[in-house]
Design a protein around this nucleic acid. Structure first.
Lengths: 368, 368
DNA sequence: CTGCGCAATCAAAACGTTTTGACGGTTGTT
DNA sequence: AACAACCGTCAAAACGTTTTGATTGCGCAG
């Protein structure tokens, strides 16, 4: 529409110098004499000149911005990730652009394309529906990393082991029929719910028990999805514990329980995933898995920055733990309470809010 | 750094036409013959050409993006607002850029300046620390609207009346010493906590009681701030109810209560503000104020769009209600329970999650 | 056969920067 | 006194688009 209010040429004219001199005064890439420099800066202030972001971006062919595409911001796990990402990227003086795709696959794809047309220097794809490969295609030559499923991220997160640990933990406390509500996924290589079904089947096989696939349902990372997922699962009787793919969904389990007069943990045990701050504020405080956002973001950002600079990261993966943070949403259903994981640790767990302070106790929970 | 992968010139060369022809084929602003057009589009696909966002922005001097600056995303009220904003702006085919300022005033100001240097066409300032006037200065000629305090927004939200309603509601249920945890503010004209102090004093005066200013403290919109704010308030004895400037802070009250073995609502009543989805998942479900995000966002966006188009909005303010959503976090402390607002309505309230379904009941609560 | 209007395409300018090579002028070295 | 080195400044080109007036070639009416 209209022209930019005041340009570098206006400043140059006002100060009686050439535009390039103003540019140099601003960037400091060449020496400018004291009096001239002062005159320039005076005019800049006077005219309230702001270098056009776009002209700069066009010259340098880089924007200092990183795009992050998510389903929606309202999921506390997502917003935590975003905050964390912004904080980490700031160290490299990058800003972030958040793209909200909703639950719409097409819109997500569009957003990725849009972003990678020079709007940002790099992209974080946090959409579970879009695979790393698909994202790479959509982003063309713009570096992109996809969540934590991206092979190129030097982090190993052992979800299978985690599932195993949770199942073990629950069984140890006397739970037999266990439900799971997953995140939505379209990754053909690793459909979240399918993978979990498989592990649950394997796990039960060990005990010579049969697996009921109806106890694993796919949610949509929302509270409502958690409520209806719980409803579905509870229809199949005798379920005493449900774990969820994220805390938001787990909140839905709480909600369902309240609406149906079911007590947590006495009647139904719950385990979440993410360990968002709100998880500790529930009553009873929710047992959940601490997703190491900070570390993951730190490493992922490092990778992205390396890609941006055309550097290559020193090889070698690090393995990150996802400890079970034991609070009070899982009941011990054993007739005579034997050495229960729950009772011994929960006292200390619940007394702190800050994840950092809990590390020592958590670690022990992840060893097998 | 490097050049853009493939430009319009490359496409033009490949198709044997001039760049302007390609541009016209793309924009459709001039007729291009069938065969040429097809050749062009073929090459575009073949080379995976994407028009440079920045070059386009520079020509049109507009980006199709709106910036929104917030403290942090992790506050569910904030993320809800962001989601809502994105959805609304999409109708006008604007995208959003989210800027995270943390609790840092300087960074917020920087972000606003940065945004308004052509990065976005308009700005939403959601920082409570930055006043509409300050924001306007920082943004220069870029249109900006500041949260809901902006005089130019055609919405009237009567916070004073709301505070009055809450105080009334609580007093009616037998609460005498009432605490408040505010949002952080630097607005000299309307310091949030100060305004509330004043109203509380007026309210108590009506009953010939004295007001204890120590019962109003300033939070930082975080759970931790809620915990420590509650701690401070509870130090001054006999407080039976606390209301908060937002739900995130109210979660902190729940947290404090749990950590200190205090029962909600029996020992301490809580009222939040925002009505984020998580508020209903707490046990007991939290009584809170429904902040009409949807409507506010709709109107505010309308205003911003008008500013962008240099149009002027038809005058006339609309008044939006902020109904108290009564759930179960407030106790009736009257010896013999007389007509209590709580008991009569809560049954219906808690049975639904979707705010839309609650409207009729809510309204009645706001009529003084 | 000339001239006109029209459709399709092109060439050039513009947007606001940064960058680079060039140009005077001063200073310092022999 | 001559020359090199250097400093401060400038002019011009470049970045990838869009836009606009100009230029073709064509069919068709006079």
């Amino acid at each position: 529409m209209g022209k930019q209010a005041v340009t570098i040429v206006d400043v140059a004219k006002a100060a009686g110098v050439s535009p390039s001199t103003v540019s140099h005064a601003l960037s400091g890439k060449r020496e400018i004499s004291r009096p001239v420099k002062e005159r320039i800066f005076e005019k800049i202030r006077e005219l309230d000149y702001r270098p056009s972001f776009y002209a700069q971006a066009m010259k340098s062919n880089s924007t200092g911005m990183i795009g992050v595409v998510v389903n929606e911001c309202r999921n506390p796990g997502t917003s935590l990730f975003i905050d964390s990402l912004a904080a980490e990227l700031e160290k490299y003086s990058y800003k972030i652009v958040v793209g909200l795709a909703g639950l719409n696959h097409r819109k997500g794809a569009e957003l990725l394309r849009h972003f990678s047309a020079g709007l940002v220097d790099g992209v974080f794809n946090l959409l579970p529906q879009i695979t790393p490969e698909e994202a790479q295609v959509l982003c063309g030559s713009t570096p992109v990393v996809t969540n934590i499923r991206d092979r190129s991220i030097p982090i190993r997160l052992d979800y299978d082991k985690l599932t195993w640990t949770i199942l073990h933990y629950l069984r140890d406390l006397g739970h037999r029929r266990i439900g799971y509500i997953s995140s939505p996924t379209r990754d053909p290589r690793r459909p979240d719910s399918e993978a979990t079904r498989q592990i649950m089947a394997e796990f039960l096989q060990k005990y010579g028990e049969e697996f009921d696939p109806r106890l694993v349902v796919e949610g949509d990372d929302s509270i409502e999805g958690g409520v209806s997922g719980t409803e579905q699962i509870m229809n199949h009787g005798d379920v005493t514990a449900i774990f969820a793919g994220n805390d938001q969904t787990a909140f839905g389990i709480y909600r369902w329980a309240y609406l149906n007069g079911v007590q947590i943990p006495d009647d139904l045990s719950v385990i979440g995933f993410d360990d968002v701050p709100q998880a500790a504020t529930l009553i009873p405080p929710m047992t959940t898995v601490r997703f190491p956002v900070q570390e993951i973001v730190a490493h992922t950002v490092k990778l992205l920055i390396a890609k941006l600079r055309n550097e290559t990261l020193p090889p070698g993966q690090i393995s990150l733990e996802m400890p079970l943070v034991i609070r009070n949403s899982v009941a011990d259903r054993n007739p005579c309470s034997r050495k229960s994981w729950n009772k011994t640790i929960s006292g200390k767990q619940i007394s702190t809010l800050n994840p950092r302070e809990r590390t020592s106790t958590e670690r022990s929970m992840t060893c097998q």
